[in-house]
Amino acid sequence: MTLHPEQMGQSKQDLAAMLKDVRKRAGLSGDRLAKRCNMSQSKISRIENGKVLASIIDVERILRATDAPQELIDEATALARTAHTEWQDLRSLRRRGLHQKQQELAGLESSSSEFRYFLLSMITGLLSTPEYIKASLSHLQGDQSRLITKKLDRQEILYDTTKKFTFLLSELAVKWPLVPAPAMAMQLDRLVSVSRLPNVKLGVVPARGHIPVAPMDTFTIYDTTLTTVETTAGILVLRDSRDVAAHLELFSVMERHALLGDDARTFLRECADAARDL
């Protein structure tokens, strides 16, 4: 079953309707199905009414409890995966106004307690100097001052000690010359400074030795419930627990290969000094 990004929102309603239809075709009441699945009847009702998005595991339990054929199980599972995935294309985000995206991110940060960032080729806004943020937005037309202000305002969350942050930067992200050398040195100095916050762990994954995996994108994990993946064309939002778990495992591997603490700060200071020498 192939679904395109524009169908992702509709798939949530389609999944609810499919599960309700399957139950009725099996001649089961909501209460009987709930007992077979070891769920509450109220949860079955909320799933079928679209008030609760069924997890992929929930979908499999429901369909097997109704003796659904494997073809239907495969179709519904694919639909569930799509329902747990949101695609935000960059063109649409620009039309809405990218400052709106900053408000959405601030909401995610407010409602989450632990954050894991893997930064493949650029430094994230939470760690960026104003000059770096401005340079990262230079390809956009018009006045970006409002967006820059929103990004800088979000940095306050770093000083909330009830939140825990882990940032892993590839060596490419550290060294990519997005701004002139003097500004890049200042940016690296900021990384060293932020790394000393008590609730922040900052690591650098050096391009040496043997690293058995190769992440393809920048991604952020919020607690253990949601992952966002940034691409050139837009952002994927993944809520399926298996997708989140896969990114947690990838993050763990990268963390084991990262320079951390004083080792990371030494590496960053050396890069900053090299930029100043330019």
Rank of each mutant, 00 (worst) to 15 (best):
M1P: 06
Q7A: 09
K12I: 03
Q13K: 15
L19Q: 09
K20Y: 04
K20D: 02
K20A: 03
V22I: 09
R23G: 00
K24V: 06
R25K: 15
A26L: 05
A26I: 04
A26K: 12
L28W: 10
R32A: 15
K35Y: 10
G50I: 01
I56Y: 11
L63W: 06
L63T: 05
T66L: 15
A76I: 10
H84G: 03
T85C: 02
R91D: 02
R91S: 14
S92Q: 04
R94G: 03
R95W: 10
R96E: 12
H99W: 12
E104S: 09
L105W: 00
L105T: 09
A106V: 03
S110E: 05
S111H: 07
S113N: 06
F115V: 00
F115R: 09
R116G: 07
R116E: 02
Y117I: 03
L119Q: 11
L120Q: 14
S121M: 05
M122F: 03
S128T: 11
S128Q: 12
E131W: 06
S136H: 01
S136N: 10
L137K: 05
S138T: 02
Q141K: 09
G142M: 01
G142N: 08
D143N: 14
Q144N: 14
Q144D: 04
S145F: 06
R146Y: 10
L147C: 10
I148N: 08
K150Q: 11
R154Q: 06
R154M: 01
Q155L: 03
E156C: 02
L158I: 00
Y159Q: 11
T161H: 10
T161F: 02
T162P: 04
K163A: 07
E171H: 07
L172P: 02
P177V: 03
N199I: 00
V200W: 00
K201A: 10
L202S: 08
V204F: 11
V204T: 07
V205W: 09
V205A: 03
R208T: 12
G209Q: 05
I211R: 15
A214H: 11
M216E: 15
F219W: 02
F219K: 08
Y222A: 12
T224M: 13
T225M: 07
T227M: 07
T228G: 08
T232R: 14
A233Q: 13
G234P: 03
G234I: 00
V237F: 09
R239N: 12
R239W: 12
V244L: 06
L248Y: 02
S252P: 00
L259P: 02
D262Y: 10
F267P: 09
R269I: 14
D273V: 07
D273T: 08
L278G: 13
L278F: 15
